[in-house]
């Protein structure tokens, strides 16, 4: 029933599919690849070669083609692969109570959190830095390098708070952390642990 996907952690989903299949990773990957290939039977083998960085394409397609899939310039085949994983994931997780579907959350970044900082640092590239001790322009880079996940606070209607962790590399269609707070989204989430609200602060 999804009409728009703004974030999808494909690697986690594909791990989940493989593990659910009883560790038959190769079989699942092969199956996904096969079906994606069928859909794109008309696509030249060249395209597959360019996707050799995908773990399940494997070494069959010459390594080192140095393909950089830009955020928007994703090839159609790689999109099909990705959407095949998405479709499989949706079917598999629908009746799995371990994957919780959280609805109606108000999502915010606490004022002193890393996620909050990360929302602003991209703009610091326009800051004047000559007379300052630190290079503000590179702060974004530094934060991106320091942490691959960002925590946001999700508040339900009953005032129960959850911490939602996002893989910064998993946003789709050029969405980012800042956009989440403005959308009415359903989050598919896996419970991984506990923390305190204070634990989200930069200092912690």
């Amino acid at each position: 029933d999804l009409i728009k996907v703004v974030y999808f952690d494909e690697q986690s989903a594909s791990d989940y599919l493989d593990i659910s299949a009883g560790g038959k990773a190769v079989t699942t990957a092969e199956d996904v690849r096969q079906r994606a290939n069928n859909v794109h039977a008309e696509v030249e083998a060249k395209v597959a070669a360019k996707l050799s960085w995908l773990p399940f394409i494997g070494g069959s397609a010459g390594a080192g083609t140095g393909v950089e899939a830009s955020r928007t310039g994703q090839s159609m085949l790689s999109k099909t692969l990705s959407n095949t994983i998405l479709t499989d994931y949706l079917a598999k997780s629908a009746d799995d109570h371990r994957v919780r579907q959280l609805r109606g959350l108000r999502v915010t970044a606490p004022g002193d959190s890393m996620a909050y900082m990360k929302m602003f640092t991209p703009y610091m590239i326009i800051a004047k830095t000559e007379d300052q001790g630190i290079d503000l322009a590179r702060l974004d880079e530094a934060l991106a390098g320091a942490k691959g996940y960002y925590e946001l606070l999700g508040e339900a209607d009953d005032d129960v708070k959850h911490v939602l962790r996002f893989n910064i590399a998993a946003f789709r269609n050029n969405y980012g952390l800042t956009d989440l707070g403005r959308m009415r989204l359903v989050f598919h989430a896996v419970h991984v642990g506990h923390t305190t609200e204070r634990g989200l602060g930069m200092e912690a």
Binding site: L2, V6, D9, Y89, V163, L180, L185
Partner: peptide, 16 residues
Amino acid sequence: DLLDVYDVVLAGVEYG
């Protein structure tokens, strides 16, 4: 008090 931490796999807009 303790908050539950969730790793998000997917976020999307639902129909309806």
